[in-house]
């Protein structure tokens, strides 16, 4: 049980980072923390003790596999996470060019 709680703590560390840091790059890192905690959680819920990797080798003696579905989910989620991170960092570079700073407090052209 303790590992799941640690996952959730990692999730909240990421959220804390997003809410408190002022630097755009640090916000992106905080977002990554949140996503990685979720990936870790997904892998953990598919884990079974003393089970082997879910690869069919044609050997009938192996019957005890870990759950492959969360692993497939995590792989897909990592690919999606790559796309979002790429977008975010591109935005960060463009914001740096337009505003000349990474400080989120100075990026205030929108009001109301």
């Amino acid at each position: 049980m303790i590992v799941y709680i640690l996952c959730f703590i990692l999730f909240q560390v990421g959220l804390f980072g997003i809410l408190t840091s002022r630097n755009i790059i640090k916000i992106v890192i905080g977002l990554s923390f949140m996503e990685f905690s979720v990936y870790l959680f997904l892998v953990l819920i598919g884990y079974i003790e003393n089970a082997s990797a879910p690869i069919l080798t044609g050997n009938p003696a192996q019957t005890n596999f870990v759950d492959p579905l969360p692993q497939a989910m995590v792989l897909t989620a990592i690919v999606i996470g790559l796309a979002t991170k790429g977008m975010l960092l591109t935005m960060a570079i463009r914001i740096y060019k337009k505003f000349g700073t990474f400080d989120i407090r100075k990026v205030t052209s929108l009001k109301g």
């Binding site: 997003i18 755009i24 916000i27 977002l31 979002t84 977008m87 975010l88 935005m91 960060a92 463009r94 914001i95 337009k98 990026v107 205030t108 052209s109 929108l110």
Partner: peptide
């Protein structure tokens, strides 16, 4: 404005 809005939306 677009960049700032999009960044906020993304986070």
């Amino acid at each position: 404005e677009e960049l700032e809005a999009s960044f906020k939306y993304q986070v």
